[in-house]
Amino acid sequence: MTQAIEHLPSKLAHTAHGPRAFGWWGMVWLIATEATLFAMLIASYFYLRFRSQPEWPPSSIEAPELTLPLIMSVILLSSSIPVHFAEAAIKKGSVTGLRIGLALGSLLGAIFLGLTWGIEWPEALHHFTPRTNSYGTMYFTITGFHGAHVLGGLVFSVWTQVRAWKGAFGADRHLTVQNFTMYWHFVDVVWVAVMATIYLSPHL
């Protein structure tokens, strides 16, 4: 079989995004391994719950209040929307849309984090600490792991925004934006699992 002689460097694109880029696949597998980590954490929660006591939460700790967590959920999940539009914008070449979307997304993320660490945690600490029992341990470990991921996402967002302001991205150059978006959506999806485990399941 003889093929036509191809000179690939002049024929192919020199920037890649989506599944053509190595970095995109790197992010996919990073998320896969992180998702496994959260799955194990949540499995551990239920393992300890079903192994230890008949009552959960144990030793007259109240099941968690739902109002604030629900508000937090709305805030965090809605942050995915501007982030999604930011990515859509840069795909069409709109740097302004990118900047606005990312800024809005990170603002919502920051509010979520502020609520977690500023109100939700101090409130919980009135009733129990990680050292009280396995319930307190799991509560703080899981929300802590998730919060750390939101923080990581925020740093990633700021980094992406700085580069967006410096004009690093365009219609055919936005792998970092894509990777950030993927990561941010992931952190949001994990929150749904955290919400269901930590806040809803004790009421069942």
Partner: peptide
């Protein structure tokens, strides 16, 4: 280090975890 309860029976942990 911090006295969390995952594996120690005392605080409701479980070594089998």
């Amino acid at each position: 280090r911090f006295g969390f309860h995952f594996f120690g029976e005392a605080g409701g942990g479980d070594p089998l975890l």
